[in-house]
Design a protein around this nucleic acid. Sequence first.
RNA 1: UGGGCCGUCGACAAGCGGUAAGUCACAUGGUUUUGGUCCAUGCAUUCAGGGGUUCGAAUCCUCUCGGCCCAACCA
Length: 560
Amino acid sequence: MENKDSSKGNFIRDIIDKDLLEGKNDGRVHTRFPPEPNGHLHIGHAKAILVNYSIAQDYNGKFNLRFDDTNPIKEDEEYVNAIINDIKWLGANWENRLFYASDYFDEMYDYAVQFIKIGKAFVDSQTAEEIRETRGTVTSPGVNSPFRDRSIEENLNLFEKMKNGEFADGTHVLRGKIDMQSSNMLMRDPLMYRIRHASHHRTGNKWCIYPMYDWAHGLEDSLEGITHSLCSLEFQAHRPLYDWFLIQLGVHKPQQIEFARLNLNYTVMSKRKLLQLVEEHLVNGWDDPRLPTLSGLRRRGFTPEAIQNFIYKVGVAKAHSIVDYALLEHSIREVLNKQTLRVMSVLNPLKVVITNYPVDQFEEIDAINNPEDPTAGTRKVPFSKELYIEREDFMEDPPKKFFRLAPGREVRFRYAYFITCNEVIKDKNGKVIELHCTYDPASKGGKSPDGRKVKATLHWISIAHAIDAEVRLYDRLITVPDTNNLEEGKTFMDFINPDALRILHNCKLEAHLAKAEPGYRCQFERLGYFCVDPDSTPQKPVFNRTVTLRDTWARMQKKS
RNA sequence: UGGGCCGUCGACAAGCGGUAAGUCACAUGGUUUUGGUCCAUGCAUUCAGGGGUUCGAAUCCUCUCGGCCCAACCA
């Protein structure tokens, strides 16, 4: 992980430093990531995972993965496998500490019985509507349930019958007995158990009552010996309740600390929106490279290291924020620039004929694999009379700052020769279909023996030696920065970028790329970083563009 | 509106009473056989606003303004 430097301050580390100084928890640090297996992980989860994990690591502590599977009707095994897979890939290591809330159902039940016995919980037989109505509002107090003063014996008896399946869903709940007047809504006799005759993906039909979040979560943390329970801001109001339950029980009480979740502009992160995109087939599944899901980013070509670096750069604080997508792009370019081999690929081919080059001649040109890494060596690239260049690299009537090929202009073909454009061939419609050029044999290797300068170096590929490929170009999913702040009557669906995916066929690649395995990453010189998609085969290679290179020329064009 | 939390450069974010770090973005210049990379420089006299305490305040007190969260038998 970039920057083992744990000196980068954040308020959570300050708290932990202080705890350690005071000798709390016998000097232990133990964190956890507790996803509910009801959806797929996205870059926002990566923050939660990585702050918990990196803190455990930096303090020589432990990190647990725990599935918070307390609601069987929303959860599924499919999600647990996907989540495990994503977290492993991300690089967080829970060693042998993979747990499930459902592992603790027996203990939670026993604690609940104990809770009833100390008079802190009661069985409420009001309907859901009655409970809602008597809870009051944020500005007005609630009123006590008529069942609040049931005897301990009656509560014990009823709760056991709840467990034994003698009641229908919704007929009874177990509630903590706190204060219906509390200014904190969560303290108004919170629900601890509800009846749910539903099969659980791990416990099957053993249970028909399931614990609610507030009762379950603190106990899970406590049972696992978690010291610092790091979660997102929306749980701040839950903390008094989290503490209250554990204090009544007299068990180990971890410290809950909340931080702001990650938001990224020009995309969507909510479970609901992601699900809608997938279900309405606006994207091709959870691993669609347009999505900010971990599986999508992986398929797009992101590396775990880039995501780790990104999360590190984002930092941890309590202020709500929306991070600029450009920071994510920078993070992936930074690692790919160092690691990735360069290759010359032409996405949008324009034929070039070198008129003074012998018809059946070809030569092997030496090309550098990675200028950032001398140990990456060189390779041979075939050069011949007929080549392709990028259509965008030629303009018949170029504007002032256009340095590339134009009639009468000389440029360098990278690693090969200086080339001059002499003639432009067009079809009946006036579309340029071919360029006739000449080369300067003295400029072999792309050098100019006479000190002649050219303003551009173009990539190219020999027609006879190139392979065809499909290339998928990606752009931002959403056209506006923040879908949580839209004008009246609009939803995020109104701002989906139709050009977020552009598929190019007949792209021309260096032949050795046919053998590249899915997941292989490289740089197409001057175009960006690309990786081989799982759809790819040696007969029909498919590449995804992870991210473009920074492009000063494109920016200049956009401005004017 | 009751309660809780938050407001430091365009975006993140350090800062913890001693005179505004860093990163991204942006701009300019240099290097360059990728208009990439790299290098250099610039980019908050000011910390939501007002008042107060202090020799000294982004940091402490106070009021005001703005934003977010809480009224699922979700997590």
